[in-house]
Amino acid sequence: MSFRRNLRHARSHLIIVAVLIIAGAVIVQIEDRNLQQEAGKPIPDHGIESVGTVTGK
């Protein structure tokens, strides 16, 4: 059986993985932002700024 054909059988797994990752990323972004706002702290820009702060650049 060809790789392409096997991959077609596996599509439901891949679609679920994509949905989980996208939905998870969106939810985490929104919820963390809300929590920060409620706590009265500045909204973190995940990634670049916090890395920059740590390395002092």
Binding site: M1, N6, H9, A10, R11, S12, H13, L14, I16, V17, L20, I21, G24
Partner: peptide, 21 residues
Amino acid sequence: LPFLVLNELAFMMGTWGLSGY
């Protein structure tokens, strides 16, 4: 998420060639 994603990927390979859905 790591658990759910790994679960999908693991059983995709564990039943490679069949649709697990």
